[in-house]
Design a protein around this nucleic acid. Structure first.
Lengths: 223, 223
DNA sequence: TAGATTGTTAATCGATTAACAATC
DNA sequence: TAGATTGTTAATCGATTAACAATC
């Protein structure tokens, strides 16, 4: 229905993409990487859907939000689709990330290998405990929270992880916003109030277990 | 204010409750606990909605899935609604939980205080590294994975957290299923294949950062 | 070519929001 | 009583699924 330039990735993603689609995009990426790991060169919407518990139609519809990545009669070339999804998610590059809060969780996150493999690298950690300042964890220097703005600017940090107690989280978030951070992954069990121009993702570990508890208690036939 | 049988929590929750509603239920609970902490005795759907970024109608509709908890003209009594939501989620009791995998993440989870406050307590940890067996972390004994069934049965464990490398996760999940576990919280970056009678919640830390990356890259007016 | 599978449109299904009588 | 706020129904909106022509 058009002529000159067919296969451009159409409108480069507006605010019209449902959040649920973006979540599934990450799952497709993970599954595709697994498939490559197992030696598959191509896959298709039925296989991807079956692995993840989605319909084939949903897989195709989700991808269609971002462009045309498949080959009728063939399916999808894994490596090609992986590259395309990484570009969409913004993880075709490596993001410098900061961690705030060096308790159990903060330290564990600094040591977690999974981030580096997906396009994120820790470049600074922050705490308010003077005993920890200057320390190095996994090769990452620990700064005082007071130096946040300075370090964020110097290292070009745009994303931060909040791993402080709930009572301190909002103050830390405010400091991060003031320092110019653009996105916050929050592990503190509170709802952060943030300006619209700062993105937010929240993970509450206790809530995840609550969801599991609900599922177990309310499983069909389970009093 | 009623007599014989009006205000029963109606049909005690079928499979008709959308997953999204259950997620929000946990958020309502967290917010209510915060409100109590701040000294509020009552709240209402507008306040709860505003704090969480939902409409007041959604708050009321969500709660209506489970019964009638409010007072027209008044709102909701915080403590009362907290008790009701805990009962719905199944966290009005304390669940014995097992952790499998004592790497950085597994250890951090064992030490994390947030679980105990919400109705979960660790009663056993498992690993395959013989150096760790018999060790005690935060007062929790570390067993060999081979003893899973035995310990699970002895301690009445129904929920487990998987914090092992992705390459080991499915085998661990299979062992958990064989041991009679009913729900798995999975931190490994793989999609676990589980029988229908075992519930599953997945948290992939890298995926959470990917979602943040996407949000930042595709923010309105941001090339 | 015949078979397979895409991208996309239309139909269905489900979830959110608005509105309001009932109630405290 | 007047004011506030619920629970619930109806209207709207959005997301998922089914179906199929186009394509490799």
């Amino acid at each position: 229905m058009d002529d000159s330039k067919e296969k451009q990735p159409p409108v480069p993603v507006e605010s019209t993409v449902p959040q649920a689609v973006v979540s599934r995009l990450s799952l497709y990426l993970r599954e595709l990487q697994q498939l490559v790991h197992e030696g598959h060169a191509t896959t298709n919407s039925t296989q991807l859907g079956t692995l993840l518990g989605f319909t084939d139609a949903q897989v195709r519809k989700d991808l269609a939000y971002f462009g045309q990545f498949g080959y009728p009669g063939i399916g999808y070339r894994c490596e090609e689709l992986i590259a395309a999804i990484k570009k969409i998610l913004g993880t075709d590059r490596s993001w410098p990330v900061a961690v705030v809060g060096l308790g159990n969780l903060g330290r564990a996150l600094l040591r977690y290998r999974g981030f580096n493999q997906q396009g994120f690298r820790f470049v600074a950690a922050f705490d308010v405990d003077t005993h920890k300042i200057g320390e190095t964890v996994e090769g990452i220097e620990v700064f005082h929270l007071d130096d946040l703005s300075e370090v964020v600017a110097a290292k070009g940090i745009r994303l931060a992880i909040v791993a402080v107690p709930g009572s301190a989280a909002q103050a830390v978030a405010d400091a991060l916003v003031a320092a110019g951070i653009e996105g916050i992954l929050n592990f503190a069990p509170v709802t952060l109030a943030l300006p619209d121009h700062v993105s937010r993702v929240g993970v509450d570990l206790a809530i995840e277990l609550e969801q599991l508890s609900f599922a177990v208690v309310n499983r069909p036939e389970n009093p």
